[in-house]
Design a protein around this nucleic acid. Structure first.
Length: 435
RNA sequence: GGAGGGAUGACAGAGCGGACGAAUGUACCGGUCUUGAAAACCGGCGUGGGCUUGCCCACCGUGGGUUCAAAUCCCACUCCCUCCGCCA
């Protein structure tokens, strides 16, 4: 949620910044008008309430003096004012609810570093990395045996079974088996072991209350992208960011304790409602995948470094896995609702010949903290909203895909990087089953 | 799932219809005393909102209700504890 006080102080600047993200000036004008109206009504209602309270005190005084007549007269007066107050409060609350509803739908103010753009094609590529990279070429050279899509490799080796996934849960649900299953498990352990020391490891619930979903900005706006468990009023989390952001909801943290760094591997559930028929082969886009998330609550002054640290760690994982990747500065049109600035990491899939998003490292400023009401006490004794920062490290389904393609051998087997050996029982080679 | 008990400030804990945003203790911050510290004593010490910046309003698990007036009474819900049942 944006800062209403800032909107009052600098309406034109906030309007201009949000216009970059497609928020109409009519919407902003409506919000400003509602805010004004709400405060006007609030003054009236609170004035009435103050009068009722004062009269009630006088009734008490009269009763104590055994002056029943005065008490009754004051009661009657207060009763009448109380009726007015009820009406005024209802009107105030209705306007306040409308205002709040509009504010909840508003995206975050983009940072000046964010480039203008309509969609993902306007994202700005910052740099690329691959093993033994040279400035001369845009990509490493891949052999023909690496130019096989992971769903074919998965079937050949018996390690990915999309058909069975569909049989159990419908299309776009993956089922890994054998060495494939062990690989997906290995990746999570690998990342958690690397970062769990500096970022406290959390294993949160996979479901969340509506309140929790509102805190991150996933509700109300992205309601169609979420799986709902309606009978119990729960939502399947789309990312570990959801529970981690709400871990300290409503709390005031000590400044000395910041940054609070957390990490979690969770299942991530996405309906992909708007993506029917797009990129649906294999693991390109699935309804459920495992992901390790790195997260920090920090002060505004710590935010840059907190963001850089998560980005560094995500890159370091990709480098240690020897995968080709690039960094994108997301444009205004592709930025997530709650984010002020996001760097995406995309891994190159030689078998599909495409870049696949495997991480978004985002800075939310105080947008989520305001919704979740997470504050810290400053050294001056005042309170201030924290900043939240998070990033995936990493989304494993697509990493799995890039790994089996990148490390496919001429004989059709897959030889995985040695860094994973401890998590694979020492066996880094996946061979076709002998039938 | 059933029965009972509970939820109040950072913590402990009183209050159970009227002057209560809330006693008291601990913790914390400042001061006196001290070479220094401790102890003792004195003072301070919740969060948010509105506007005429001095006042007003809200908040005692959450949401409704009763009343001139609710932390206090009534209803529903949530969570925690104990016991029973069921279960990995």
């Amino acid at each position: 949620m944006i800062d209403l006080v800032e909107l009052r102080r600098e309406p034109d600047a906030v309007k201009a910044a949000l216009a970059r993200r497609g928020v109409s000036s009519a919407t902003m004008d409506e919000i400003v008008a509602l805010d004004l109206e709400h405060r006007r009504l609030l003054q009236g209602a609170e004035g009435l309430r103050a009068q009722v309270k004062e009269l009630s005190r006088q009734v008490g005084d009269a009763r104590r003096l055994k002056d029943a007549a005065t008490a009754e007269a004051l009661s009657a007066k207060s009763r009448a004012l109380g009726d007015q107050e009820r009406v005024a409060s209802e009107e105030t609350d209705a306007v306040g609810a409308t205002l709040h509803g509009l504010l909840l739908m508003l995206p975050n103010v983009p940072d000046p570093k964010v480039p203008d753009g309509i969609d993902e094609s306007d994202n700005v590529e910052l740099r690329r990395w691959w093993v033994g990279m040279d400035e001369g070429s845009p990509l490493p050279t891949y052999a023909n045996h690496q130019r096989v899509p992971h769903w074919e490799i998965g079937t050949q080796l018996g390690i990915l079974d999309m058909e069975s996934g569909a049989k159990l849960a419908g299309s776009m649900f993956a089922l890994y088996r054998g060495a494939g299953s062990r690989l997906i498990r290995a990746l999570g352990s690998f990342a958690l072991d690397r970062h769990g020391g500096d970022y406290e490891e959390i294993h949160p619930p996979s479901f969340a209350l509506s309140e929790t979903m509102v805190s991150t900005g996933h509700l109300p706006k992205s309601v169609d992208d979420m799986y709902a468990i309606e009978r119990d009023g729960l939502w399947a989390i789309p990312t570990g960011e959801v529970p981690l952001t709400s871990l300290h909801r409503g709390e005031i943290l000590d400044e000395a304790a910041l940054p609070v760094r957390l990490c979690a591997q969770t299942a991530c559930f996405r309906r992909e409602a708007g993506a029917a028929g797009r990129d649906t082969r294999g693991l390109l886009r699935v309804h459920e995948f495992d992901k390790v998330e790195l997260f920090a609550y920090c002060t505004p002054a710590q935010a840059d470094e907190a963001h850089a640290d998560i980005l560094r760690r995500a890159e370091e994982l990709l480098q240690s896995l020897g995968l080709t990747y690039r960094l994108l500065n997301l444009c205004t049109g592709d930025l997530g609702t709650a984010s002020a600035y996001t760097i995406d990491l995309e891994v190159f899939s030689p078998g599909v010949d495409r870049w696949l998003e495997v991480s978004s490292v985002s800075w939310f400023r105080d947008f989520q903290a305001r919704r979740a009401n997470v504050r810290y006490r400053t050294s001056e004794g005042t309170t201030a909203l924290v900043h939240t920062v998070n990033g995936s490290a990493l989304a494993w389904a697509r990493i799995w895909a890039a790994l089996v393609e990148t490390y496919r051998q001429p004989d059709g087997s897959v030889v995985l990087p040695d860094v994973l050996a401890p998590y694979l029982g020492g066996e880094t080679t996946i061979r076709p089953k002998v039938s």
